Simulated assay, not measured.
Amino acid sequence: MRQKLPAILLIGFAFAASVVTTGRSEETKIPSKDNFHLFLLVGQSNMAGRGKVTPDDQVKAPKVLMLDQQGKWVPAVDPMHFDKPKMVGVGLGRTFGLEVSQSDPGVTIGLIPCAVGGSPIKSWEPGAWDAPTKSHPYDDAMKRAHRALEAGQLKGILWHQGESDSRAGQAEIYEQKLRELITRFRKELNAYDVPFIIGQLGMFEESPWTKSKKQVDQAHQEIAKSDEFVLFVSADGLTHKGDKVHFNAESYREFGKRYAKAFLEFKEKVSQN
């Protein structure tokens, strides 16, 4: 006959289980403000990430944190975003953070995930509502950014967006809209000397670019050419996960390395001037 466990042991087991299941949401100690370098992750689904998550993507790195949905600083593990919980997966943000962290062991990287899958650029205006996700992309991002800035210093804004605007009637005005968005971000966050890093739309053989998609790509590149604080990151050679829209996990990780390379080269250039 099986003996009943004492009540105190049952309570202890229950407590241990709660620690395991809620461990990810436990807040992490952060460094001084000068040594906490923040990066805002904004745009639509290819910034949020839709790649397949593996155990390696959930390994915690003590020097790379993220602001979770509750506004706590926790280890940056995929999936980082929460725009569409059933779809979100590996993105480029975590790899970017790891690469930048390795370049400067004296600082901690803080990632601020704010991307919203499917959001056109008009959703990234003050007061704009995104019905599918029941969110205000711009307003929500600003609230999270200002909360993060209480703890650290903004060092970069990572942007990947444009698929939803690659259509007639929207692509023609995309460049103007993006320039306005960049100006708005800089003013709101006092980020005039912070690089705004744009990732190129997916270049997939199975899905040739339309005229509208070419217009959006041209807008990305033209803004980067005309603004020394805007960087453009190529998506050449990256592949999709089978849907001809979203990168696969391996490509997201490579993209994160490319974003980091662009940022670190910019940082080196600034330090030499």
Rank of each mutant, 00 (worst) to 15 (best):
R2D: 07
A7I: 13
A7R: 11
I8D: 14
G12W: 11
G12N: 07
F15H: 00
A16R: 02
A17Y: 13
A17I: 15
V20A: 13
T21Y: 13
T22V: 04
G23N: 08
T28D: 13
K29C: 09
I30K: 14
I30W: 14
D34P: 04
H37M: 08
H37W: 11
F39R: 04
L41I: 11
G51I: 07
G51Y: 09
T54Y: 06
D56A: 13
K60W: 01
A61W: 12
P62A: 11
V64A: 09
L67A: 08
D68G: 02
G71R: 03
V77E: 01
D78H: 04
D78Y: 06
M80D: 06
H81Y: 10
D83E: 12
K84S: 15
K84T: 15
K84R: 15
K86P: 04
V90I: 11
L92K: 01
L92E: 04
G93P: 03
R94E: 10
R94N: 12
F96P: 00
F96E: 00
G97C: 08
G97Q: 05
G97Y: 11
L98K: 06
L98P: 00
S101F: 10
D104V: 03
P105D: 08
G106I: 02
V107G: 01
V107Q: 08
I112D: 02
A115R: 09
V116H: 06
P120K: 12
G127A: 05
W129M: 04
P132S: 03
P132H: 01
T133G: 08
K134L: 04
S135A: 13
S135I: 02
H136R: 13
H136C: 03
Y138L: 11
D140Q: 13
R144Y: 11
A145G: 13
A145K: 13
G152H: 07
Q153L: 14
L154F: 08
K155M: 08
G156Q: 04
Q161F: 09
G162I: 05
G169K: 08
Q170G: 00
I173P: 00
Y174D: 05
E180G: 03
E180Q: 11
L181D: 00
R184K: 02
K187D: 09
E188H: 05
E188D: 14
L189K: 02
A191R: 06
A191K: 06
V194N: 02
F196A: 03
F196V: 01
Q200F: 01
G202W: 02
F204I: 09
E205S: 11
E205T: 06
E206V: 07
P208Y: 09
P208G: 06
K211I: 04
S212D: 12
K213N: 05
V216G: 04
V216N: 06
D217I: 07
H220M: 10
Q221H: 14
E222S: 15
E222W: 04
A224W: 04
K225C: 05
D227P: 03
F229W: 07
A235I: 03
A235T: 10
G237I: 15
L238P: 03
G242K: 15
E250Q: 12
E254C: 01
E254V: 10
F255G: 00
G256V: 06
K257A: 06
R258Y: 04
R258G: 02
A260P: 02
F263R: 00
L264G: 01
E265N: 10
K269R: 14
V270Q: 15
N273S: 15
